[in-house]
Simulated scan of single mutants.
Amino acid sequence: MYSIRSDVGNLIKEKRIKSGLSQEAFALLAKVDRSYMGRIERGKANISIELLYKLAFVLNCEVFELLPKSTIKLID
């Protein structure tokens, strides 16, 4: 089953790794619990728009870079 959470989580993880941040360091900078950050990256947690903006700020990128380019798939 398709999940936009998984796509967003993967994009966040890719940006974090490219930024050279460990998950723990990233969570600390974003003021988010490390285990919650792990759930976000694995697509197991819904995040608010506010948190998405905060993560983009920490990653020094635009919010749209953390969103899938196209979501044409049907969600069950």
Rank of each mutant, 00 (worst) to 15 (best):
D7G: 09
R39P: 01
M37T: 03
K73Q: 13
D33A: 06
P68R: 13
E24G: 01
K69W: 09
L66Y: 00
G38W: 06
E65V: 02
D7V: 10
K69V: 11
V32L: 13
I4N: 09
Y2V: 15
S6C: 06
M37F: 03
A45F: 01
K69I: 04
I4M: 10
A30Q: 06
N10C: 11
K15V: 04
V63H: 00
K15E: 10
E14C: 01
R39V: 04
Y53T: 05
L28T: 13
E62V: 02
M37G: 04
E41N: 05
E41Y: 07
L59R: 01
R16Y: 00
D76A: 15
T71E: 15
A25M: 10
F57A: 12
M37I: 15
I75V: 14
D33C: 02
S35V: 11
E62T: 03
I17R: 09
K31E: 13
K73W: 05
I40R: 01
L52P: 05
V63W: 06
E50W: 04
V63G: 04
I12W: 08
K31D: 13
L55K: 05
K44T: 01
S22M: 07
T71D: 15
L28N: 14
I75N: 13
K31M: 11
Y53N: 07
E65A: 11
D7S: 14
N10K: 15
K15G: 04
P68C: 09
L21H: 02
T71R: 12
L28A: 14
R39M: 12
L52H: 02
Y36P: 00
K13H: 13
A45N: 07
S6M: 12
A27E: 05
L67W: 07
V32K: 04
K18T: 01
I17E: 11
V63M: 13
G43T: 12
K69S: 12
A25K: 12
Y53K: 10
K18E: 12
K31C: 08
Y53W: 08
R5Y: 08
K73L: 12
V8A: 02
L74R: 15
L66C: 02
A27C: 08
L28C: 11
E41R: 05
I47F: 02
Q23R: 14
I72G: 04
I12D: 02
K69R: 12
N60I: 00
E50Q: 11
K69E: 15
F26S: 06
L29A: 11
D33H: 06
K31L: 10
I47K: 05
A25F: 03
Y53A: 08
K73E: 14
